[in-house]
Nucleic acid binder design. Sequence first.
DNA 1: CTGAAAGCGCTAACAT
DNA 2: ATGTTAGCGCTTTCAG
Lengths: 328, 328
Amino acid sequence: MSATMADVAREAGVSASTVSRTFSLPETVRADTRERVLAVARRLDFSPNRTASSLARGRTGALGLLVPDIANPYFGEIVKSVQRRARTADRALFLTETGDAHDEAYGLAKAMARQTDGLLLAGPRMPEDMLRSLAAAGPVALIGLHVPQTDCAYAELPVGMRQAVRHLAALGHRRIVYVNGTRTARTAGFRRLMRAACDEFRVELVEHLGPFDLTYDNGRAAADLVPTSGATAVIAHNDMVAHGVAGGLARQGRSVPGDFSLITVDDTYLARAIHPALTAVHVPIDAMGAHGVDLLLARIADPQGPPRLVALPTALTVRESTGRAPAP
Amino acid sequence: MSATMADVAREAGVSASTVSRTFSLPETVRADTRERVLAVARRLDFSPNRTASSLARGRTGALGLLVPDIANPYFGEIVKSVQRRARTADRALFLTETGDAHDEAYGLAKAMARQTDGLLLAGPRMPEDMLRSLAAAGPVALIGLHVPQTDCAYAELPVGMRQAVRHLAALGHRRIVYVNGTRTARTAGFRRLMRAACDEFRVELVEHLGPFDLTYDNGRAAADLVPTSGATAVIAHNDMVAHGVAGGLARQGRSVPGDFSLITVDDTYLARAIHPALTAVHVPIDAMGAHGVDLLLARIADPQGPPRLVALPTALTVRESTGRAPAP
DNA sequence: CTGAAAGCGCTAACAT
DNA sequence: ATGTTAGCGCTTTCAG
């Protein structure tokens, strides 16, 4: 089929080792022989067989990325940034969608670990012990999730959330609803955080809306509960839900931000792509993906090193969906 | 490190060949020895090394998927369906984002071809001769694009588009705008098609809006040109653009469908996730992805077989964004 | 049904 | 700076 190093070696009058070296350690071969080899390689349309190389080296050069749901814009943007970073590091990327089932996700991760040098888990909906077990078995980095003793790149929400509540308080809102998610590790800390922020700014927090799956439809459903809650502002756990809340309120003939203010968390393109554009707690998804890759590469290079956490800052981005609270 | 077939063979008192067979050709080994081997394998936590297997077999078991833009919901849904189908076929999936540069995309495809058994190109923005050259070099299937003499799974737009125009005509619209895209192979045929449909239903077609890049922002920009066009309805080339058009019209204080009717093409979740929900020419993205994988697998199995086209039907889905034309 | 032997194409000491 | 020599772990004739 395709030419091998042996072919090139013969044609160029050198040994296979030299051919190998001109591709992997170019500096170690004299310039003129290198040129000769490359010329022959070009003529024969040769390029090294990655599989053979992987076998001999004992590593594949590929990374694996697992996400719960590819079509979700949040994960879509993560996949995008991971893919980019992986490429600049000259690593190929395996992608797998895990869905929500823990055991299945675990199995998929295990399987993928066998054909990659390391695993990136984005927002895994998996118990911590499974995550730890995976991390113990091979290089693993987490994206968008904070698990102690594990390499992870995540968004530090407190600052952004506090800004969000302060923003609403400053606009005169005294009672706000938080539409929360379910099954995400973020939820617990996130709720505690919201309480603290609301206490600080003397805002009442209505929290019974949820937990929901983080879907558009659930956001719409949540919107139906908002008017009777006595609240004048809503904070939604992510953009899909916020989108749904906005849609639901619009359907009821409510105006945003006239009747209700709305703040979203994540800030994918969706937050800008609706009318009114959503005020958002911006999560640096891009940076999370890139740092995740870097953490993983570092872990691969040094399996024994201490675990590293990269906490990325969040901040409020004010757009059109927040305004003064309506007069009581 | 991890156990090898030789280890298992020794422990089980058989040869490495037998271990190999119990994993790849289980029927060819007697039930009791198979059980014995599997028991040892389980005990040693052994599973076959994919890389070694790939090298020996001469194929990797992996497929490669190239998309221009992962974060675009259209491609996100394609990635999702391809990934699913690949998994049921027990194939791992490499993912690469190509961006818009032809040459780079070509290079990435070439590189990926070396580490996979075949390539899936989704909506490639690449000249036909490059595509053909890739297809000549190894198994390739196209998704969402019709290129003669090549395996491809694509949506047959005529039926859906004709229904869209007829729908608008029936609602009394006499002049419609088509916001078209650029750099997609779909564009040329699509425009011809629109003309034909409009002629058939005696509707005037205003086509000077574009070509645009298919982004939300360009949709918003396009919306600014709509009111002066004299048209009462808009058909947008994809959901992102339609989304932008809707946002732009809303910002101008125009009502949809009160002042303008709007139809989108593709029908990703975005089409349902805005208010009003968009009437759409539904493109069966899921089926396209699945068929793409099937075509590729067939091609891999039989490199010499005749090229196959899979044309999936489209149809109009009426939602809330279309209504009677306003009185003149 | 099972085993022995010869690779798959490349890499990495070790020698020269 | 280059060549020699063993593999990496699995698959696959070919014998038995």
